[in-house]
Simulated scan of single mutants.
Amino acid sequence: MPSTVVVGGFFGDEGKGKIISYLAQKDNPEIVVRGGAGPNAGHTIEDGDKKYKVRMLPSGFLNKKARLMVGPGVVVNPDVLHKEISEFDCSSRTFVDFNCGIIEASHLEADSAGRLKEKIGSTGSGTGPANADRAMRTLKMAKEIDSLKKYLIDVPGEINTALENDKTVLVEGTQGTFLSLWHGGYPFVTSKDVTASGICADIGLGPKNVDDVMVVFKSYVTRVGEGVLENEISAQETASRGWSEVGTVTGRQRRAAEFNFSLAKRAILLNSATQIALTKLDVLFPECAHVQSFEKLSEAAKSFVTKIEDELNVPVLLIGTGAGVGDIIDLRT
Rank of each mutant, 00 (worst) to 15 (best):
T174P: 00
A235L: 09
E104Y: 02
H107V: 13
V228G: 01
C200G: 01
D47V: 09
R67W: 09
D212M: 09
E30D: 14
K50H: 06
A132D: 10
K53Y: 05
R254V: 05
N28A: 11
D154C: 14
I145M: 13
R252D: 00
P39N: 14
L284Y: 03
G60C: 05
N99K: 15
G198K: 03
S197E: 10
T138K: 15
R241M: 10
E295D: 15
D13G: 04
M141L: 15
P2Y: 08
Q292M: 10
A37C: 00
G247K: 11
I159A: 04
V6S: 05
S219N: 08
T174R: 07
S147H: 11
Q292P: 06
I102G: 04
K192G: 00
G157E: 07
V169M: 10
S191E: 04
V283P: 00
I319Q: 02
L297W: 00
T248E: 11
K296T: 11
Q175S: 09
L108F: 00
S240K: 15
F88R: 00
S112D: 06
L331K: 15
N260R: 12
N131E: 08
A289H: 10
E258F: 13
L139D: 03
L270S: 05
V70G: 01
E87C: 07
G173R: 10
C90W: 00
V216Q: 04
L281N: 10
T4Q: 13
F11Q: 13
K119H: 10
R67L: 11
M214R: 12
Y186F: 14
S59E: 00
G242L: 04
V75R: 03
V215A: 06
G326E: 15
S59Q: 01
S86Q: 14
G176Y: 09
I319D: 02
G15C: 05
I85K: 06
L81Q: 02
N40D: 13
E287R: 03
V54E: 00
E84H: 04
R241D: 03
I268N: 09
R55Y: 09
F304V: 03
D27A: 10
D13I: 10
I159M: 02
A300Q: 12
